[in-house]
Design a protein around this nucleic acid. Structure first.
Lengths: 151, 151
DNA sequence: CTCTTGTCTCTGAAACTTCAACAACCTGGA
DNA sequence: TCCAGGTTGTTGAAGTTTCAGAGACAAGAG
């Protein structure tokens, strides 16, 4: 047990800011989407990823990885979305263990209705505050900081 | 209702990365703290903010603002922490509506025990991946992106 | 073929957060 | 003084996420 390498002044400042951002930004996005579309932000991410997919259908495991969530969480979320008729589950033709999650027309309609307001909020909270150079920096930094799989 | 200003290619890329980060980084921090200290990350933030305060005591509203949470959430969280004996609630001497949250010695001990492992994880996930210049960039960007109070 | 090991997904209970409503209190002005 | 309106903090119910466990299937070794 050696002495921990504490953060220096600059690191501590950046860390405080980052933690604050991690608390407030998701909360702000969530609030806007709940108010305007009646969907929590993680659920919106599920729908959005599905809509970007070729057939509007993705296998559960892949969808979980795309959204950045766990399979358990995804199961519960998709169950909720399915009950609203925005998503459907189908058997996977190549792997009988698999389930394929497909976006319904009703789900697509919800997404189309919610997207403009969401983009507007994203601009207000993020991109309206940054210069083009800073957007590039943000791109680089976020790419570097994305946690990798645990060994 | 005018045409929404969609994100351009760079913005969309940065946004995808950022959303991914907002999903994965809090989850990673939370997991480490739960495993090692038995505390969720938001609860750790409460304890950490208290320990940084002059008297290890902060009024509920101020603590909520510091941590970046809501008063309701804080009430529940502090109730849970109080039950474990890590925190105590006292009446505010100047404002009878107020409650002051104070870190106990037991709570401080938990924090002291958890801090080294937490800092190590923060290094592994964040600062070990960044150059000094990038830490400065991170500091600037996160400061700009912190959501401001709603009107 | 059979066995073992690992993957994929779901479930139910516990923990946490959000939401709406509320009581108690402060503040400023009539 | 008194009251209207805002602030502070809590609560219970509803919704979401985590955790542990289990069933079904796949893939490879023997």
């Amino acid at each position: 047990m050696s002495e921990p390498r504490w953060l220096d002044e600059d690191e501590a400042s950046a860390w405080t800011n980052l933690v604050r951002l991690l608390m407030l930004l998701p909360a702000a996005l969530d609030r806007q989407l709940r108010e305007e579309a009646g969907v929590p932000h993680p659920y919106y991410q599920i729908l959005a990823n599905l809509s970007d997919s070729p057939d509007r259908a993705i296998r559960m495991t892949d969808l979980a990885r795309l959204v950045g969530t766990t399979s358990s969480r995804l199961s519960h979320a998709v169950a909720s979305l399915e009950q609203r008729g925005w998503v459907r589950r189908e058997a996977c033709p190549t792997d009988k263990r698999g389930q394929i999650c497909r976006l319904t027309d009703a789900g697509m309609a919800v997404l189309v209705a919610a997207a403009p307001g969401h983009v507007e909020e994203v601009r207000r909270l993020v991109f309206d505050r940054l210069s083009p150079d800073e957007v590039t920096q943000l791109n680089t930094l976020t790419a570097k900081l994305t946690p990798t799989e645990r060994p």
